[in-house]
Amino acid sequence: MANKQLLLIDDNEDNRTLVQFALKASTDWEVSTASDGVEGISKAELERPDAILLDVIMPGLDGLTVYEILKCNLFTCTIPIIFMTAWTQEEILSKLKASLAEGVIVKPFDAINLDVQIAKMCDWEVVNG
């Protein structure tokens, strides 16, 4: 898959490490991280990544709030956003899917196929999938 730049916004350090490790092992994508919504918004404006992986449950600004801010921002409104969540309640998943985000990845996720999931959600060419 072509070199892409992703931004992962997640307050859990273990999740950030796992995503970075999984994508580094299978792609040449660059993954930067942010540990909260405020830092994530700032990095998204500055870096303008090809896609954003966004945790839903975070202290301060939750993922849905961050999503709304990014989609209303002239510099970040066109960046594809994929929610990542441990919530499996159908009501929550339906709300996330209705948000017009590119997709939802439920935690725990399949680290081996994470790159393929992301590529498909963003309509990127999948070489190995």
Rank of each mutant, 00 (worst) to 15 (best):
Q20P: 00
R48G: 01
G60V: 04
I82V: 15
P49Q: 03
T33P: 01
I52R: 07
P49Y: 00
T33M: 13
L18I: 15
I52T: 03
E47T: 13
S32L: 11
C72S: 15
L64T: 14
L74H: 10
I82D: 04
W29Q: 09
T78A: 07
V31G: 06
D28W: 00
T78M: 07
D36P: 01
P80K: 00
K24T: 13
V38A: 14
P59Y: 07
L18N: 04
T65N: 13
K24I: 01
G40M: 06
C77P: 00
C77A: 11
A86F: 02
G60R: 03
F21R: 14
S42D: 14
L23P: 08
Y67M: 03
D28Y: 04
F75W: 03
L53F: 02
L70K: 00
G37Q: 10
A51T: 10
L61I: 06
I41M: 01
M58Q: 08
G37D: 03
M84I: 14
W29R: 02
W87L: 10
V66M: 01
E47L: 13
Q20C: 13
P80R: 03
C72L: 13
A22I: 07
V56P: 00
D50V: 09
V66C: 01
A51G: 14
A44S: 12
P49G: 02
D55A: 08
S26I: 05
P80G: 02
F83P: 02
F21H: 09
I41F: 09
T33N: 12
T85S: 12
S35P: 04
A34C: 05
P59T: 03
D28A: 09
A86S: 15
S42I: 03
D55Q: 08
I41G: 04
L54C: 03
I69P: 00
S32G: 04
A51M: 10
P59F: 04
V31Q: 08
T27A: 05
I82A: 08
L61A: 00
T27K: 11
L46M: 14
D50T: 09
G60E: 11
G60N: 11
L70G: 01
W29V: 04
K71H: 05
S35M: 09
G60H: 06
S42L: 13
L54Q: 07
F83D: 02
I82T: 11
T76V: 08
